[in-house]
Design a protein around this nucleic acid. Structure first.
Lengths: 241, 241
DNA sequence: CGGAAGCTTGACGCATTTCAAGTGGGGTGG
DNA sequence: CCACCCCACTTGAAATGCGTCAAGCTTCCG
């Protein structure tokens, strides 16, 4: 199976022949996780990072009262816990939403990359910086926008991220995320997520059939979300030396 | 003036003689900003990153309606826009809250570091990962906690971060942040920030005199915030080769 | 001494939560 | 192949945290 991270980086002119081979070589092995299984967890000192090849996963942490906050959604092509290379113990855990195929990369190999391949180091560093930029975008929606705009913003972001790994057909994509999980990500109760999604449907912005999400009015959805995709940095270039 | 980032990293056993000298050498020049001045802004393609030597600054972005969301607070010792090294254009801007002394580091020198000094590269990468971990902690408070707990959590975090650069005396520290700014950071209206702070005061958790914040009951403040400082990774070690 | 910026207070309204019942559909065991 | 069950989704009513508006107060600094 071709690796969606490599595909994405190549398509955007970030990755070249040399680095591509290195990235493929350092994949120690491939593992499959079932829904709700932990891909990585905070307590342990991990020695591998997980690159998601297929499936969806979330980063989450739990408050003492058992409440869950989802801090990130990871889709194919995401290096889900690349930050665990330097940040141990992890302050959060990664859990599979769907069946996930994950490529494992040893931290010792990542260290080797920082020693021998400065350009590839910057590319990987860049990946973690985009993660942080997405965190900031989520902070902005949580802090300053109402539930309707938060969810609309998420749908816009998800569409563009899935598009960059070729997982959008026309104007629709698979979104295997429950309303409860949406609520846990965006600080909204499950009940209210439901009502807001119905509102977006009744306004003709989206249609959903099971896990299939269809965007009917991309312009109005972006407007409702005050969406500006700049923060995703999809066309970012990195100086090659 | 000694550099608080270097002090902090040295104290925690992350930085050694060699890297210390390199870090000091790459400081191109030192600049002073006045309150409300922009240290870095999104539109431009920056070629320097800013290391805060003294003073407070925030990262923020504005919604189309003129609303502001503060996504990070930066204190002395923080590399405020290190991420602009690889992420251009910046999705946000950095603004001085107080008079700020800032050390500028050229992006070309940072690139040189990734080429020649793998350990120092990992240290700098680590700094951006801690930033991201703080983003996740803020996401959790915004998503799952009430205004009282959000502000309490912020006070706990700020105390520990200031402590790591020696800016806490006993149980008090300077906090030159207006209630409006607190609201813009944590998704609370100014009015409500005021009421919550009064509540924390009347419960005897804190006292404040002007910009001086005094923590009277550290244990109960942490409890109110459900605070766990792990995510700050203050004692993190990084393998040195 | 005046003015601006920040802090405080009260009243009212609304977005969202909470509680409490359903409904529907897909998967599993008999 | 059907019946059951669990999980996700849906709906309504009542409660509330917080925002908004509007006004007054205090502190600091030129």
């Amino acid at each position: 199976m071709t690796n969606p991270l490599i595909q994405k980086l190549e398509r955007h002119g970030i990755l070249f022949q040399d680095e591509r081979q290195i990235l493929q070589q350092i994949i120690a092995r491939t593992v499959v996780y079932k829904p709700r299984e932990e891909i990585a967890h905070g307590g342990s000192s991990l020695s591998y990072s997980s690159l998601i090849v297929s499936g969806f996963a979330v980063r989450q942490n739990h408050s003492p009262e058992g409440q869950r906050q989802i801090t990130a959604l990871h889709i194919p092509g995401d290096f889900a816990d690349l930050h665990s290379f330097l940040l141990k113990p992890l302050d959060d855990g990664v859990v599979a939403l769907t069946t996930c195929t994950v490529a494992l990369v040893a931290h010792s190999d990542l260290k080797e990359i920082t020693r021998c391949f400065p350009y590839l180091t910057r590319v990987l560093w860049f990946c973690t910086l985009v993660d942080a930029a997405i965190h900031r975008a989520w902070l902005t929606t949580l802090g300053r926008m109402e539930a309707r705009a938060r969810l609309a913003h998420f749908l816009c972001e998800l569409r563009d991220r899935l598009d960059s790994v070729g997982l959008v057909n026309e104007n629709s994509f698979e979104m295997p995320i429950t309303q409860e999980e949406l609520g846990d990500a965006f600080g909204i109760s499950t009940v209210h997520v439901n009502r807001v999604l119905q509102e977006l449907r009744s306004e003709g912005l989206i249609t959903s059939q099971g896990k299939l999400m269809i965007i009917n009015d991309w312009a109005r959805l972006q407007e409702a979300a005050q969406y500006n995709p700049e923060y995703l940095h999809v066309d970012q270039k990195i100086e090659r030396d």
